[in-house]
């Protein structure tokens, strides 16, 4: 039986995000926080010290006056497929890549809180717990039992809703199946998106919408030139959106990005 699990081909989970369908409502951000027991902001938290595993940035084409156009870009951990910068810098081995799923995992229990990984991550997708996690009285009843709350002083980030992956796996075993049903494993942000802008699935299965989205000529990845092989594909028919996401000059994307 154990040999059977070993034979199942490794999945390569990824996302394709259609920037042209995102209206910046923020459902993905709050759904993520609900699912992963991310606490509400401490009173002193700002956009630099908050916890947003997925974050929607507003970017614009830099034009002045009536020629200015904006777009919303959700940014989460890009689950680098090759040489993930956060993995190699961690002194604690608190970050690993699961060969079976391609998911870059963060282990808050091992984390020292040195934040080296945050400095290394080119996508600013890692967040540090600057405060003790606190919920208003009574609200702790609404926490998700499938995800452990983290403590102050550790780094956390998106892990493609790993609690849902566990649950889907247990359900597959209960039904006597080897593979999990794709309908059982959908991250919270994908499920929450009202405009259906995010697709999640196996990139190595050409039939999935995610893999099709990734192959589209209008799709691109963030900072592809760094060679980290991210598994989040973005899609936009607008040239300026595709260009800004490759950030030809350091700082250019940042100047025009707010959020």
């Amino acid at each position: 039986m154990i040999a059977e699990t070993k034979k199942t081909p490794a999945a390569r989970y990824g996302m394709s995000i259609d920037v042209d369908r995102c209206n910046g409502c923020g459902s993905c951000m709050v759904a993520c926080a609900v699912e992963n027991n991310v606490p509400p902001a401490a009173s002193g938290a700002t956009d630099r010290t908050g916890l947003t595993w997925i974050r929607v940035f507003r970017i614009d084409n830099g034009a002045e006056g009536s020629g200015r156009r904006s777009a919303f870009v959700p940014v989460l951990c890009q689950h680098c497929g090759k040489d993930a910068p956060c993995v190699s810098v961690c002194p604690q081995q608190a970050v690993d890549v699961d060969p079976a799923t391609g998911i870059v995992g963060q282990m808050p229990e091992r984390c020292l809180g040195c934040r080296y990984c945050m400095a290394a991550c080119p996508y600013h997708a890692r967040y540090f717990n600057w405060w003790d996690p606190t919920w208003p009285a009574g609200m702790e009843k609404t926490l998700n039992p499938d995800v452990a709350p983290r403590m102050r002083g550790v780094v956390e980030k998106c892990n493609f809703c790993h609690g849902r992956w566990h649950a889907a796996k247990a359900k597959a075993v209960a039904n006597g199946k080897n593979e999990i049903d794709p309908a059982d494993y959908i991250p919270a942000c994908v499920e929450a998106c009202p405009s259906g802008a995010i697709h999640f699935g196996k990139l190595n299965d050409p039939a999935t919408e995610t893999a099709q989205g990734a192959r589209d000529p209008d799709s691109f990845r963030m900072l592809e030139s760094l060679g980290t092989d991210p598994k989040i594909y973005y899609h936009s028919k607008k040239n300026w959106v595709r260009e800004i996401s490759s950030a030809p000059r350091p700082g250019l994307a940042k100047e025009n990005a707010r959020g």
Partner: peptide, 9 residues
């Protein structure tokens, strides 16, 4: 706060 404070969305 994720939308109002921790980001300016």
């Amino acid at each position: 706060t994720k939308l109002y404070q921790e980001s300016g969305l």
